[in-house]
Write a protein that binds this DNA or RNA. Sequence first.
RNA 1: GGGCAUGUAGCUCAGGGGAUAGAGCACCAGAUUCCGGUUCUGGGUGUCGCAGGUUCGAUUCCUGCCAUGCUCGCCA
Length: 584
Amino acid sequence: MSSPLPLLTSRFQAALVAAFGESFAQTNPLLSVASNPKFGDYQSNVALGLAKTLQSKPREVAQQIVDQLSLEDICDPPTLAGPGFINLRLKPRYLADQLLQLQNDRRLGVKTVEPQRIIVDFSSPNIAKEMHVGHLRSTIIGDSIARILTFLGHEVLRLNHVGDWGTQFGMLITYLREAYPDALTQADALDLGDLVAFYKKAKQRFDEDEIFQSQARQAVVALQSGDPASVQAWKLLCDQSRREFQTLYDRLGIDLKERGESFYNPFLPAVVEDLQTLGLLVEDAGAQCVFLEGFQNKDGNPLPLIIQKSDGGYNYATTDLAALRYRIGQDQVQRIIYVTDAGQSSHFAQVFQVAQRAGWVPEGIDLTHVPFGLVQGEDGKKLKTRSGDTIRLRDLLDEAIERARKDLEDRLQLDDRQESPEFIQQVAETVGLGAVKYADLSQNRTSNYIFSYDKMLALQGNTAPYLLYAYVRVQGIGRKGNIDFQGEPLQEGLVLTEDSEQTLMKHLLQLEDVVTDVAQDLFPNRLCTYLFELSQKFNQFYDRCPILKAEEPQRSSRLVLADVTARTLKLGLSLLGIPVLERM
RNA sequence: GGGCAUGUAGCUCAGGGGAUAGAGCACCAGAUUCCGGUUCUGGGUGUCGCAGGUUCGAUUCCUGCCAUGCUCGCCA
């Protein structure tokens, strides 16, 4: 393990028992990283809360705990401060020993946990539409969450719940039937751009023309009941979109299993029947509904969740309920994580409520909606092109890569460096795509975020290029000194004498805490903050401590410290879906 | 009107019961015998939207209000 926290916790619990008796064996010692490094490395706040129960003064309680604490192998003698904080400082000897452990551990101190089966449902674009920046957030955040859970040892099913079913197909098929019938019978009769244009026109007709609307609704019902011509047309349209999506996933390095809404079609009638049997279903205005608890419509009446439309068709609530049942029953998962925009929060709350009331969610199954905010332009409004259209994801990625290439070429020219076109291409792609991903992941996902190429590609600040460069620096040391970091590991004799070495090492020890925390709360931005701070601390160390020119045993110790830092950066970035470069 | 989210430094944002609320950018000034300066060191700012409440302690939790965004029965 890398984190000292479990060890410190058990020592504190022993001290609590010794000081106040057996009943305090389970008391949480409230240990955390010190709020300010000047106080130490870790702190315990337990005395402040305990004072009341013990009818004593906080500082006295703290002193009684400290008197019983046995930490000589880990820390300097604990100190009391303020109203009753207990401050701890790790010993340099302990840090050097831990560095040796990390050097020999491929997982860099992060243990695997008891495995669960978990579904991460993310990305989920709609067939016959282009992926846009909104899908980017779901895709990137979902991918990172899946990577982190997998790294901790869980069995993760990465599901792409594509929108390949429903009213949109009725619209599209009805429209194409009159405007471009070949598209319904021949593969690739249209390219995707045309398909998107047809979709827009179909939507327009749907909104304006009542006859068209009812034809479209009938077409949906025909499709959902398996009409062969409709099914064939539908398959052609899906194949075309699927290939387009896949090129984007390949570029982004995203692994996903497609299991779209259509997959659950056979299970939809049973959802209705079972809700009927349970007595939850009510007919209202011709539609089959479950009336929700705690939701109101504009008139203050209970809000229904529509399970079956008045025309007999199903909608996405039905599909999500069927999916939920399948995932729990057939996939046998213990946790389902839905990564979608915050606008769907109430939809998921409603679906979860109905599933709970129907008894479809057994004890111990965790359903979590992971919402995220909008991507906005620098004007604070929804991100658009100059002409007001939605920006296509592939155009956005292309532009990030082009800008990264331009930055690189300018730098090469300044330094009079010659590099091959292949090198330039690889660096531009890695930096460009990495910057886009990191910019998104480094924000707290709950709020909206302002998209800026300039900021995400900046070489300073909390950006992908800054982190990538810290990694490259270590590789530069290796090349310069002819160091084989993969070689025979040292067995002993490491020393950490300088403040900047110790500060860096203390940060390396926190990786496990951070990864565990992100797996729990599903906020990848905390991992970003950790990696940014790690890079800053590495740069301070690099600035103050010569490595190759140092005398032994400093030289070897610093090489190990640099290597473990680089490996931590590489691992951390990989959990964000961002590959590193050896040179840039 | 109901629901949800957000409101923290000039800007972009972290933090989320505990000590003097942080970072990056921008701005100013410095450093560099060096392993790639895409670096490092200094310099200062805040009624943590407003008002109450809970608490030994609130920017953090609760309530109300204000502002902004998203959303509210047959799209997903």
